[in-house]
Simulated assay, not measured.
Amino acid sequence: MATYKRRGYKPKDKKEQQQADELQSTTAEVFNTLDETASSSEKWIEKNSKLLFTTLIVIVGLFLAFLAYNKFVTEPNELEASNELAFPRKYFDEAATASTGIDSLLNLALEGADGKYGFLDIAESFSGTDAGNLANYYAGTSYLKMKQYDKAIEFLSKFNSDDEMLGPVSLGAIGDAFADINQPEEALDYYEKAAAKKENEFTTPLYLYKAGQTAMNLKKFDKAEKLFTQIKEKYSKSEQGRDIEKFIAAAKYAE
Rank of each mutant, 00 (worst) to 15 (best):
A135T: 03
A131P: 00
A38K: 08
S99V: 03
S157A: 15
R89K: 14
F72I: 06
T214K: 12
G167Q: 06
S99C: 00
N48T: 05
G112W: 08
L62S: 12
G115T: 04
Q18F: 10
E192D: 06
T27V: 12
E255R: 11
T141C: 00
E78Q: 11
I57K: 13
N136S: 05
K12E: 08
P76C: 06
N107M: 07
V73H: 10
T74V: 12
L144W: 04
M216I: 15
E46I: 00
P88G: 01
A196P: 07
A173G: 01
E192H: 02
Q240C: 03
K151G: 05
V30C: 02
E42R: 14
N200F: 11
A20I: 05
E255A: 13
Q240H: 10
A152H: 03
L105I: 12
K219D: 15
W44Y: 13
F119K: 02
L64A: 15
G112K: 03
A113M: 04
E29P: 01
L23V: 11
I57G: 11
L206K: 11
G241E: 07
N107E: 10
G101D: 07
S142I: 00
K158T: 09
A211W: 14
E225F: 07
A187F: 02
T203H: 05
Q183M: 14
K47H: 13
K193D: 13
N48D: 05
T3G: 03
Y137N: 05
Y138M: 03
K14L: 02
D103A: 05
Y235Q: 05
S125Q: 12
S170Q: 09
L56C: 13
E36W: 09
K5Q: 13
F159H: 06
P11G: 14
G212V: 04
Q24N: 04
A195Y: 07
S127M: 06
F87Q: 11
E245D: 15
E154D: 14
S104L: 07
F53I: 08
A135C: 06
E201S: 09
D21C: 01
F126A: 01
D176L: 08
T129F: 01
Y191K: 04
